[in-house]
Design a protein around this nucleic acid. Sequence first.
DNA 1: CGAGGCTACTAATGCGGTTTAGCTCATGTC
DNA 2: GACATGAGCTAAACCGCATTAGTAGCCTCG
Lengths: 354, 354
Amino acid sequence: MTPQSDGAARATPARRPTIKDIARRAGVSESAVSFALNGRPGVSQGTRDRIHRVAEDLGWQPNSAARALSGERSGCVGLVLARPAHTLGVESFFLQLVSGVQEVLAARKVALLFQVVEDIEAECAVYKRWWAEKRVDGVLVVDPRSDDPRPELLDSLGLTSVMIGAPAEGERQVSTVWADDSAAMASVLAHLYELGHRHVVHVAGLPGLAHTERRINSLRTQAGRLGLTAIRSVPTDYSDAEGAEATRRVLDSDAPPTAIVYDNDVMAVAGVAVAAERGIKVPGELSIVAWDDSALCRVTHPRLTALVRDTSGFGRLAAEELLARLDGGPVRSLQAELPHLEPRESTGPPSSGR
Amino acid sequence: MTPQSDGAARATPARRPTIKDIARRAGVSESAVSFALNGRPGVSQGTRDRIHRVAEDLGWQPNSAARALSGERSGCVGLVLARPAHTLGVESFFLQLVSGVQEVLAARKVALLFQVVEDIEAECAVYKRWWAEKRVDGVLVVDPRSDDPRPELLDSLGLTSVMIGAPAEGERQVSTVWADDSAAMASVLAHLYELGHRHVVHVAGLPGLAHTERRINSLRTQAGRLGLTAIRSVPTDYSDAEGAEATRRVLDSDAPPTAIVYDNDVMAVAGVAVAAERGIKVPGELSIVAWDDSALCRVTHPRLTALVRDTSGFGRLAAEELLARLDGGPVRSLQAELPHLEPRESTGPPSSGR
DNA sequence: CGAGGCTACTAATGCGGTTTAGCTCATGTC
DNA sequence: GACATGAGCTAAACCGCATTAGTAGCCTCG
C-alpha cells in the first residue's frame, strides 16, 4: 500500500508523552514521577515541583487505559437510557439532566459513557458488560420503577450507583436523588382548587415508573383531603399520540373535567392542540397544567402553566453524589429542591356553565 | 473504619475472570486463549472450541483497560456537543441522532463517550484531552461551521473522525456524512411556489453553521431561478425566543411574506404561536414550513408541514463510516438520503388579498 | 535418513501506569 | 561511636491482555 493512495494514511501524529519521558527529562525514576504527580509522599518538594514543570512542558496526561488497569479506577461513569427509539428526543428532560451531570463530572475529569437501549433487560445487560469489562466506576440510573430489578443487580455486581428519581427501596447499596412528587402534585392541585376546579384529570406517564405511582397516589390523597369529587389518572406512554388520545377520551366522557394535569410537556401541548381542534377555549373551558417546563410550554398559545424543576441542578446533585460515593462516602438519599408552579395563561377559573 | 459502619462496604462482588482463569481451566497457555478468543491462527479447532466454552462458562469479557493498553484500540468513540446549556434539549435532533449511532456501535460493542460543553474552544480542549488520555479511538463531530477549526485539529492529532452535516473542506483526513440541504431547500420552495407563494422568508439558524449557509445560498439561487421577488433569510440562535422575535419583526414589516420557512421545529411552533396571538390564520394568511419533523410538528394546531429527515438513519450512517475508518477504510464523503417534504395543514395557497 | 517446513502450542515481553519492597544517606540518641 | 530512624529515592513486580519469538513434534521429500 503506497502512502499517497492509502485513505487512512496521515502524517505521524505527535507521540503521547509517558511518565518514562518525564522521568528521563527530570532525571529521576518513574516511580518518583508517579508519586509526585499523584501527590503522594516520598519525594522532596523541590523534586516534586521540577517533575510537575516537566509534565506540564510535555503536555502529559495520564493514559486512561494504563491507569484503569493498574489503579482500580477507570475514570468513567455510565448512564443508560432504556427507551424505545421512537419515544426519544421529544422531552427536554434528559439532555438537561445530562448537561448538569457533565458540569460536575467534567470538573473532576470524569468521562460519561452513554448508551441508549430498547428496554430494561438490555439495560441490565449493559451494566453486566460494563462491569465485566471494567469500563465504568459507577453508574447513574434513571426511570426508577416500582419493583425495580436494577438495584439488586447493581448491588450484586458491586457497581457503585445513584438512582435518579425515587427513594431507594430495601437495603440496597444504592444512593438516591429524588424530588418530592407528592408535594409537587399537592401544590398543583392547590392551585387548581383555589381557582375553583373540582373535577381534575391526571394524564399520567408510564404506569411502571415509581414517580408515576407517587403522583397518582398523591392525587388520590389530596383529592380526599380537599374534597374533590371526580378525579382520576389515565396512564400513557408519554408520547404526544397517547397524550392526545387520552385527552379526547377524557373530553368525550359524560362528565368532562374542568382541568387536566399532564405528566410531561409534550402531552400537555398535544392536549392544547386537541382542545383547539374542538374549539374548546383554554383556559376558559379547560385549564391545563404541564409537569416540567420547557420551551414547549412557552411557544404554545396560550402559554402553559407548568411545574418547574431545576433539571440540570438535579443532574449536578446526582453526579456529585456519585463522585462522593466513589470517594468512599456513605449511601445517602438526597432530596432535590421542591418543584414550583409557574402559573401562565393556560389555567384560570372554570366556566360557571360546567 | 469498621466494616459494618462503612457506608460503602458491601459483600465482596464476584471476581472478574481473566484469560489466566480460562487458561487454567482449559489446560492451555494464556497465549493460546488469546489466540482462540481473537480468532487468530495457531490453535486447533478442538482446542479453540474448548476455550470458547470455558470462556462462556466463566462469563468472561475482555477487560477494556487491558485491551486498550496492549492493543491500540480503546473500544470507545466520542461525541461532543458544544451548546450553551440553556439551548439544550428542545430539539429532538440530537437524541435521535445518538440513538441511531448507538444502534450501530452497540452491535460492535463499541462504547460512546458523550460530553456537553459550552463552546467550540472547550470542544477542542476535550478532543485534545481524549487524545492525550488515549480514551477514544475516534470521534463524531457535529455542527460543522464555515471556517471550522476542528478538522485541522483532529487531523494533527491523528484522531479518526467523521463530520456530520457538511462536506469536508480542504484536504483533511476527515470523513463526512451529509444531507443535501440545497436540494431540500429547493423542494420546499417548489412546494410553496406551486401553491402560489411569491414572497417567502427563511428564519434561519446560527449564521456560522455550514448547513445554515448552504440553505441560505440555496434560497437565493432558487429564488432567482423561480423568479421570486422578495425573499430573505433572518438568522437566529435556534431558540423559541428568537424564532418568535424574528416572526414578529417579519410580520410587522411593510411587505409581510405569505410563507415562512423555519430552520427547526421549535421555531416553527413558536411562529405558529405568534400567528395565533395576532389572529393571523394559518395557512389562510400565512403558510409555515418546519425544517425537521418531530412530535412537535404534529401536536400544534394546525399540524405543521415539515421537511422529514431520517435522523437516526443519519446517525447510523455516520457510526458505520467511523467504524469503517477505524478498520482502515478510506476517507469518504457520504450523502444521506434526500429529505422529503411532508405536507400537512400549515401550508396552503396564499390569500388573494395579499 | 536427515534437512526443511508446517502445525500447535508455550514462554517472554511490552503497553503505561501504580505500588511495594528495599536501598542509601544524613540525622539524632545514649 | 554504634545503632535505630526516617526522609528521599530506585528497582521490580503487577494489572490483563496482545504479540513476538521461540520450541516440540510430525510430515514430506530428495
